[in-house]
Design a protein around this nucleic acid. Structure first.
Lengths: 187, 187
DNA sequence: ATAATTAAGTTTCGATTCGAAACTATAATA
DNA sequence: TATTATAGTTTCGAATCGAAACTTAATTAT
């Protein structure tokens, strides 16, 4: 048996992911960056659905993202909901069309999800967890995690809330990407 | 402990990979697509270093890829080596500058590679192998694997050769991406 | 052998991405 | 009230992107 690095598998999975994303984008008449925007907006929470946070997530300039978002609005994939308090801000919200496109992206992984037995699945989870945390530290860059791995998360008998904003968090919100996310530091 | 899907980890790893690639591209004054081209050319074999195969790998049109390749040639990342037999073809070869950029992309994974113990690594490899094969079948798209997982690979006491082209393959070549790659079918 | 077809790659076109920088409007601070 | 910071848009030039026409070389059919 010829030796495979784990990274070989990850690279192969990346190539599939990229290929499928491009295929879907082409089918919808969009660019890949548009699907990445829809992916992010499907997963982020109410603190993180602004243009500037999206800009930070994508690693592009705000002018570029502003243009791409404007096109997605024009094509009916999302709408800009003005913030009731801060008149400068808008909340980017997926339309049903946008949610459908985002869901089709996720569908790729659903197939693989049920294929691994639970015990084996657990080992992969543990290994990927180590790999992920090390890469996060090694690269020292913003990670955009969800509440469940955030040091601001507080749990008590009533449920969960964010220690930074002091607002209650539903269990659904614990899974969402947050701009305030702060990984635990193991040093 | 809140449950994490394996796909959550893979998505997080993808986001890191994408962010790092964009960061490197920005530093070099390139676009991400250029790094993807350099990545591919660093890994593909002598049957697969043409513009059309690259086009198939990237999932773009040949006009688009032709333009991007021309820019990479102009910037000194690669050269076009005319095929001695077929005058229509060119072999895309990385210059030292191109190899350096490709190597810097791979460096991201080197850090994670040594962190996982060998035994754990083996289990993760097996699970990812299952995941990869299932996703390949589920999506039924061209996968661009290397010789070691190709049904054309023949092994004997003298070494390896390709059953399709009948040419000998060095052990280094067994690791390279090939356009003729045909996955074993388990049905 | 010549003609028709296929294959490899380039060029052109219009729409869009991309980064940089200037700009507008609102909010926060001094 | 004046200054500064924040959120986002607009403008500009270069490059990507897909589609389609085009060039040249190889292959196939007649």
């Amino acid at each position: 048996m010829i030796h495979h690095d784990i990274t070989d598998y990850l690279e192969a999975l990346f190539n599939i992911q990229r290929g499928e994303q491009r295929k879907l984008a082409s089918e919808l008449g969009l660019q890949q960056i548009h699907l990445q925007i829809l992916y992010y907006l499907e997963r982020c929470n109410r603190y993180s659905d602004s243009l500037l946070v999206l800009t930070e997530f994508l690693g592009q300039t705000k002018g570029t993202v502003s243009t791409s978002v404007a096109l997605l609005v024009k094509k009916g994939y999302l709408i800009k909901q003005p913030d009731p308090v801060d008149k400068r801000k808008s909340h980017l919200q997926l339309t049903p069309t946008g949610k459908d496109a985002a869901a089709r992206q996720s569908a790729l992984w659903q197939a693989g999800q049920t294929l691994l037995g639970e015990s084996q699945s657990e080992q992969v989870r543990q290994a990927l967890d180590i790999l992920l945390r090390q890469l996060q530290q090694a690269n020292g860059h913003k990670v955009f995690g969800a509440c469940h791995s955030c040091q601001h998360l507080c749990c008590n008998e009533d449920g969960h809330h964010c220690g930074l904003t002091n607002e209650a968090l539903s269990s659904a919100e614990l899974q969402q990407i947050c701009v305030y996310h702060q990984e635990f530091c193991n040093d």
